[in-house]
Amino acid sequence: MSAPNPPLTSSGQALRWLALSLSAAVAGQALHAVEVPAGLFLGPMLVAIVFGVCGAGLRLHKNVFRFGQGCVGLLVAHTMTWSVLMSLATSWHIMLLATVLTVCLSALVGLGTVRFGGIPGHTAAWGTAPGAASAMVAMAEDYGADSRLVATMQYVRVVCVVMVGALVSHLLGATTGVSQAIANAAVASHGNLVLGIGVILAGVAAGAFLPAGALLVPLLLGAALQLAGLLTITLPSELLAFGYGAIGCYIGLRFDRETLRYVWRRLPSMIIGALVLIMLCAGLAGLLAALTGADFLSMYLATSPGGLDAMAIIAVETHSDAGLVLAMQTLRLFGVILTGAFLARQIIRLTAPAAPRQEERDRPV
């Protein structure tokens, strides 16, 4: 085992943060300039992965990540109108069906990962669950799973989902561009901007207690204030770019050298499992789009397995049905949280040897 790196001085750490910030900004702006969907998010994420794997030893504070989620939530709230809400209300049965099928597909992929990928059942059960990665890792630790493997499986899938989502959006010819909320920011009133930031900060506070609360609270509160005529949602492009970059860097920095070394032999199985789940969900999206008449890209983003905030970013930038995407992603998030323990037990029961099954059965819920 190699000796640990000496602790960084404050100036050395500041220089690394500066290098990360500049590199992430340049990468994000470069991808955005060539109209890569969610380029402002994707560029910083890829740069942060490189920094993490190269041993930079940086960790972004969770509240910065939550602030970024709040920016995305408020931006999506801008798309919420009474007509959008009525459309979502009439499609509740489709969203429920898609949620159930996506959860079942993830459980099926979890079984396959155990059978053919050599990953322990209790780890695969949580690692393939298509919910909020942080929530799945926390719940997995409570049930005795290997949190490093679970976290890596979750974030590998998020990276795969984002990369494939951006590619699919590009291949389908989706146009990218900033929201009208950004375009109007220059003429926005100071009061609206202050109130909007207050809504984002409320989400940051809620994120400590509610799964994905940093995104959902600004979404719900911002939409309510907008529908009531109390808030005109505006976000300066610089603020939104910072929010996108914060989410991307937080995810990317989770991939450090130690974790990569630990999971290296299992990494191919994780990537294959993530891609198989993405393809199954894409097939489900095609079927639902054909049945409902919705456009394929919106349905694809809505059924993509995980990465609620990332899918929201891509949906907004490609002018997809952001309301449908967020509604289905949120419904699945809570569905996974409520059924995660049950599905994990079933995967463990189906994959564990006969002797350990009683031990798993006796584990408290």
Rank of each mutant, 00 (worst) to 15 (best):
A341W: 02
A344C: 04
A302S: 12
A344H: 00
S237H: 11
W264I: 12
I278D: 01
L308Y: 08
T339Y: 05
L267N: 11
A241D: 02
L333I: 12
I247E: 01
L275E: 12
A282W: 03
G293D: 09
A228C: 14
M279C: 15
L260V: 14
C249P: 03
A312H: 04
G252D: 02
T259Y: 06
L350S: 06
F334S: 07
L333Q: 12
G243W: 01
R357W: 07
G252T: 04
A282S: 13
I337L: 15
R254K: 15
A241H: 10
A315L: 01
L221M: 14
A274Y: 03
R254T: 11
L267W: 10
A327S: 15
E238F: 10
D321W: 01
R266C: 11
A294C: 13
L239I: 05
G252A: 09
L291Q: 13
P268F: 07
T234Y: 06
L235V: 15
G335Q: 09
G252I: 04
L343W: 11
L326Y: 04
A294M: 13
A285E: 05
L231T: 02
L288P: 02
L284Q: 09
A282M: 14
V325G: 03
G229M: 11
F242V: 10
S237R: 05
T259C: 13
D256A: 07
A289T: 10
Y262F: 14
T292I: 13
A223P: 06
A289G: 14
I271G: 11
L297W: 03
I233K: 00
F334N: 05
L239H: 01
M311V: 09
A310L: 05
I278V: 13
L297V: 09
I272W: 08
W264T: 11
L333K: 06
G286T: 03
G229N: 11
G306K: 03
Y250G: 00
D321K: 02
E359V: 15
I271H: 05
I337W: 03
I278R: 03
A290D: 12
H319K: 14
C281E: 10
D295M: 04
R361E: 15
V336S: 06
R332P: 08
T318M: 08
S269P: 14
T330M: 13
A354G: 12
A274K: 10
A352T: 13
A315S: 12
A246H: 01
I348M: 07
A285V: 10
L253R: 07
L326G: 02
S304H: 01
I278A: 05
L253V: 09
T330C: 09
